[in-house]
Write a protein that binds this DNA or RNA. Structure first.
Lengths: 123, 123
DNA sequence: ATTAATATATGCATAATGCATATAGATACC
DNA sequence: GGTATCTATATGCATTATGCATATATTAAT
């Protein structure tokens, strides 16, 4: 069972975009980024480039801007198509901190569940 | 910040029902259960009884039955209103095993993300 | 010219999910 | 006997999440 398959259960994908949001906040924490370029940087967090839904990525970024977690501006004078460059806000950093707390709790709950599973299946 | 609050970010709740599904499969792994009674047993996995959406619980159980992960029958001769009692299927046990794999990977990704956060914020 | 790569964005359908509400039997209490 | 409460299951509605397909435009390569 490869990593890609592990993101699925019952033929459906689950809960990628919200985790993506946290990864994006973290990637933007200390440097700016633009949609297409963030694809590569997201792969570090387990989003394979083939599997990643680029439409979701753009929509997530715009939604985050709408919630004032990031700001964006069109890059000046680069070659190639224009890039919308995103920067995290203070609100975004606070939100990231909240997400970290949530993820720590979620991790604890997962560990608890796995512990029960192992005890029931004798592993 | 209490546990309840930790389930929220930006005023919205996230991703409870799918995790609930895995908890339900695990709770039904070695004994049967019915909706209302499972509320209490779910609290072990961090679902507080006040906060838990009972409507979601029933819908999740019916959906799981629809997917052949569990079967149900009306309990015979108990006192009080009738109970729809659920039992896990072999399919459900296989599905639970798949979910455990997914949760292990998700846990690893969370740990990775927290590691990066800590390194960026100097904790 | 045509194709491919880079780059951003929207439309549509389905699933997830909180909140409110409906239904109904059993029990307690006055 | 009537009423409130607890137990128990279920549905309707609105919003959000999310995959898939598609549209648009610039630049580079052939």
């Amino acid at each position: 069972m490869d990593d890609n398959h592990l993101m699925f259960c019952n033929g459906k994908q689950h809960m990628m975009e919200r985790f993506m949001e946290v990864c994006l906040l973290l990637l933007l924490y200390d440097e700016t980024g633009y949609g297409y370029g963030l694809v590569e940087r997201l792969s570090f967090f387990g989003f394979s480039e083939e599997q990643l839904n680029i439409g979701s990525l753009y929509r997530t970024l715009r939604k985050m801007e709408n919630e004032s977690l990031v700001t964006s501006l069109w890059e000046e004078g680069g070659q190639g198509p224009r890039r919308r460059v995103y920067q995290i806000t203070e609100t975004g950093k606070v939100e990231l901190g909240r997400w970290i707390d949530i993820l720590k709790m979620r991790k604890a709950r997962i560990e608890k569940l796995i512990g029960v599973y192992d005890s029931k299946t004798g592993k």
